[in-house]
Write a protein that binds this DNA or RNA. Sequence first.
DNA 1: CCGTAATATAAGTCGTAACTTATATAAGGA
DNA 2: TCCTTATATAAGTTACGACTTATATTACGG
Lengths: 130, 130
Amino acid sequence: MSGGADAAFDALGDPARRRIMELLAEGEAPAGAVAAILKEALGISQPAVSQHLKVLREAGLVTVRAEGTRRFYGADEAGIALVRAWFERFADGFAGPLDALETELARGRRERRLQGRTETAQDRRRRGAA
Amino acid sequence: MSGGADAAFDALGDPARRRIMELLAEGEAPAGAVAAILKEALGISQPAVSQHLKVLREAGLVTVRAEGTRRFYGADEAGIALVRAWFERFADGFAGPLDALETELARGRRERRLQGRTETAQDRRRRGAA
DNA sequence: CCGTAATATAAGTCGTAACTTATATAAGGA
DNA sequence: TCCTTATATAAGTTACGACTTATATTACGG
């Protein structure tokens, strides 16, 4: 179920692809523009960028919209959300008041699963540090 | 200026290391326990796990605490926060897991309407897994 | 139609990183 | 002091993925 985040993480493991995502975070862009910017920034060729875009596509991190001969790429919020969701398993260091309920529920679930394990820093914090 | 998140993303690009992080999300564990679990799950050796832990350490994603001859590893909230911060550049600033699921469902609906674009891995997954 | 522009795919090279086995280091316990 | 347990490091092999150049595909303008 959460397996979908795997391809996304693999994709984001590459600096060039992270750079592409950073670009697309600012809005849609045709493949050519992405290629130009990455050639300037990282010195890589158009085919290389095209291959990176393919990986991002297959990972569900970008969307494509064809317009004539151009392909407009954009960040795919759904795919990105899946990656974000992966991090929910970690206690949120600075949860705001809105997140409080959600975090608390997650904590309950987590602790129900875990019996007889080593005490964590978080356990200690909850118990004593207040 | 995303800076410090780079090594973390590189580290998380590996499935074995993600597995380790998932384990540590449930609490501290000595290196040996991690090695045992990964050997069972992925069939990799103790030195391999030790090397992975080193990468995670250098990426700032885990903490170590020595106790006798044992090393207790734990997820490092600070490093994880850096990775989370990278995603803030994308819209949908703080969506929880429930929002992620909801968004994903919406995406499925949306994409069923679209035609002529390249098939993604998720399309195939969605189509086949049913 | 034909040439050009925009992008994708093919095929091959090469560096690196994820393993392996073997060994070093370090801390107890008998 | 030795043996054992826990972990890290060394050294070497190998698979893979990120490139390259060359070419195929598709859409548009003249």
